[in-house]
């Protein structure tokens, strides 16, 4: 176990090193130079030079990279062009909102995705299998922003049941920040009205984002389950008269989970990417909304800061997933 963690941490360092090179290249070498964005139309050579000097862009590339790397190492993601604030601070402020949204979406996806995938596999080629498969292929095909749009049209514009934007009604005060999760913070504050309001705001974004993930999980679980159900040990279990429910859960699902979890972990990336779109659509004040605003404002340090943070988060999640799979599979455990 320790050896695996050590090997994976070494990998992580190499990968993060590579990540820093890529973001550096994107920010400093590719044609969309931030200076032009900053200087406005028709800048004088002087203005350009002074901006270059201010951002250290006049130095040779390797020197620029080293100072970029050293900044990253100290947790400094640069200064936002729009707000002139450190990107790290802004990112930290937006992080809990994104995490709350992503986690709720993920829980929804797991809670419904695994049972639906199991059901579809056990009842293969039945009517319910077809319905579930159709529902799942829809989920991986629907553009997230359009899914959100349809939901807003129905539940906000037509029925007026749910709010279409933000985390909380403006009239209500945000809860005192303990965890940064409004659901938990409102509970801690004992503000029932705010809690319900927060939940109402969460429903649409979490469902829109969760549906895509759910569809993915259903497809993966169904296919690993079909594989497990056709294995010899499942037949042995049946021939030994074990109960259907026990067989499906402890024989098939238990083994199907090992490949499924690896793939579901990888798909967490699409959840993080999807959060960008979802937050834009539902005006959710998280990192995703922050980055799309930065794109419109040509705020390169913010965009690249976001990219680095998301890559870091994704790499860490995959490490955790590996450890989880490791602990589930007796063959690697011993």
């Amino acid at each position: 176990m320790l050896r695996l963690i050590r090997a994976r941490l070494a990998m992580l360092v190499i990968v993060l090193f590579g990540v820093s090179i890529i973001t550096f290249l994107m920010a400093h070498v590719l044609p969309g130079d931030p200076t032009t964005a900053l200087a406005g139309p028709h800048p004088s050579q002087e203005t350009l030079n002074s901006i270059r000097a201010q951002f250290g862009l006049d130095k040779p590339l390797p020197a620029q990279y080293l100072s970029y790397l050293s900044d990253l190492f100290h947790g400094d993601l640069g200064t936002s062009i729009r707000s002139q604030q450190p990107v790290t601070h802004e990112m930290l402020a937006f992080f809990p909102a994104t995490l709350e949204l992503v986690l709720v979406a993920f829980i929804v996806a797991i809670a419904f995705g695994i049972p639906l995938g199991v059901l579809a596999a056990v009842k293969k080629n039945s009517f319910s299998d077809y319905i579930i498969r159709f529902f799942a292929v829809g989920g991986v095909s629907v553009p997230l922003f359009w899914g959100g749009l349809v939901m807003i049209l129905i539940f906000y514009a037509k029925l007026g049941w749910l709010p279409s934007s933000g985390r909380l009604d403006i009239e209500l005060n945000s809860p005192e920040s303990v965890t940064g999760f409004y659901t938990i913070d409102t509970l801690i504050a004992g503000d029932k009205e705010a809690f319900i309001n927060v939940l109402k705001h969460l429903v649409m974004p979490a469902l829109a984002l969760g549906y895509v993930q759910l569809a993915f999980i259903v497809r993966q679980v169904r296919s690993s389950m079909l594989d497990a159900l056709s294995q010899d040990y499942y037949l042995t279990g049946r021939a030994n008269g074990l109960g259907k429910r026990f067989l499906v859960v402890r024989y098939a699902l238990r083994n199907a989970l090992i490949p499924s979890i690896t793939i579901i972990g990888l798909s967490f990336g699409s959840l993080l990417g999807g959060a960008v779109v979802t937050e834009t659509v539902f005006d959710w004040p998280g990192m995703g909304k922050y980055v799309t605003d930065s794109i419109l404002g040509r705020d390169f340090p913010a965009i690249m800061g976001f990219t680095v943070v998301i890559a870091l988060a994704y790499v860490i999640i995959n490490l955790l997933v590996d450890l989880l799979v490791y602990s589930l599979d007796p063959q690697t455990r011993k």
């Binding site: 010899d232 040990y233 037949l235 042995t236 279990g237 021939a239 007796p330 063959q331």
Partner: peptide
């Protein structure tokens, strides 16, 4: 099954639940 009729299969390598 398993009570009155016992079954032994060909492939011992895959006939047992690996987890």
């Amino acid at each position: 099954r398993g009570k009155k009729i016992g079954f032994v299969f060909q492939e011992p390598m895959t006939a047992l639940n690996p987890t």
